[in-house]
Amino acid sequence: TFTSIVTTNPDFGGFEFYVEAGQQFDDSAYEEAYGVSVPSAVVEEMNAKAAQLKDGEWLNVSHE
């Protein structure tokens, strides 16, 4: 299960995956970082959410 939350205070020191406002979700980078295949429906969902981000916001993507 993939989830996401919007934050204005990303923790770059941890093992977190963020999408910056104005960027798209990079499923290849996510797969490389976590060894998890990302279904195309999830990629579309995360890109739709990322498109709604305002300046200074980040989308924190995770999975269980």
Rank of each mutant, 00 (worst) to 15 (best):
S28E: 12
K54V: 09
F2Q: 08
T3M: 10
E32G: 08
S40C: 13
S40K: 15
G35H: 09
N47W: 01
S37H: 14
K49P: 06
A50N: 02
P39L: 00
K49N: 05
G22R: 05
V42K: 03
E57R: 00
L59Q: 01
Y30R: 02
I5P: 05
I5S: 14
S37E: 11
Y18W: 08
F12E: 05
V6L: 06
Y34W: 09
G22Y: 05
E32Q: 13
M46W: 08
Q23C: 11
F15I: 11
E64V: 15
N60G: 15
A50L: 09
S28T: 13
L53V: 02
V61C: 03
H63N: 06
T8A: 08
V61A: 01
F25C: 02
E45Q: 10
T1M: 14
N60W: 15
S4N: 04
E44W: 00
P10F: 02
T7M: 06
E20G: 15
S40R: 15
V19Q: 01
K54G: 08
Y18S: 03
A21D: 02
A50F: 00
S40T: 13
T1F: 14
S62V: 12
E64K: 14
F25M: 07
G14T: 07
E31K: 12
A48V: 10
D26L: 07
S62H: 14
E20D: 05
N60Y: 14
D11T: 11
V36S: 04
Q23A: 13
S4C: 12
S28Y: 12
E64R: 14
P39Q: 03
D11R: 09
E20N: 06
Y18D: 01
N9C: 14
N9S: 13
H63W: 11
Q24R: 12
S40W: 08
A50V: 09
F12W: 11
W58V: 03
A33G: 05
E44F: 03
F12P: 07
F15V: 12
V36Q: 06
P10A: 04
I5Q: 12
A21M: 07
G13D: 13
W58A: 03
E44L: 09
D27F: 15
A21E: 04
A21K: 10
V42N: 01
T1Y: 15
D27K: 15
A33Y: 13
I5K: 09
T3K: 08
Q24G: 09
T7L: 07
E64C: 14
V61L: 04
T1H: 15
G22H: 07
Y34R: 08
P10R: 04
F25G: 02
M46F: 10
Y30D: 00
S28V: 15
Q24Y: 12
G13W: 08
Q23F: 11
S62C: 10
E57L: 00
V61M: 01
T1D: 13
E20A: 15
V6M: 05
E16P: 05
Y34A: 03
A41P: 09
L53F: 00
S62G: 09
G22S: 04
Q23S: 11
V43T: 12
K54T: 08
Q52T: 10
A41H: 14
V42Y: 04
V43K: 11
V42S: 03
F2A: 07
Y18N: 03
N47P: 01
S4A: 12
A41Q: 13
F15D: 14
A33M: 15
L59A: 00
D26V: 06
E64M: 11
A29G: 07
T8N: 09
A41M: 11
A48Q: 12
A51L: 08
A29P: 01
F12S: 06
W58F: 10
T3R: 08
G56W: 04
D26C: 07
E20M: 10
Q24K: 13
N60A: 15
D55G: 08
L59K: 00
Q52H: 10
P39I: 03
Q23G: 14
A21Q: 09
G22I: 02
D55Q: 11
N9Y: 09
V43M: 07
T3I: 15
E64D: 12
V19G: 01
T3D: 10
V36E: 04
N9W: 09
P10H: 06
F25A: 04
S62Y: 13
T3G: 08
I5Y: 14
E45R: 07
V6S: 05
E32C: 13
M46G: 02
G13E: 13
V61G: 01
T7R: 00
E64S: 14
I5V: 14
T3Q: 12
S40Q: 14
E31M: 12
V61E: 02
V36Y: 04
S62N: 08
I5C: 15
W58H: 02
V61N: 00
S62F: 14
D27M: 12
D55H: 09
E57Y: 05
N9H: 11
E16R: 06
V6Q: 02
A29T: 06
H63M: 07
G56Y: 05
F25N: 01
E44C: 09
F15P: 11
S62E: 03
T3H: 14
I5N: 11
A33Q: 15
E44Q: 12
E16S: 09
V61K: 01
P10I: 04
E31W: 11
D11I: 13
N47C: 05
A48T: 10
Q52A: 14
A33D: 05
F12I: 08
N47S: 07
Q52P: 02
V61Y: 00
A51R: 12
E31N: 09
F2N: 07
N60V: 15
V36I: 14
I5T: 15
A48Y: 08
M46Y: 02
V43S: 07
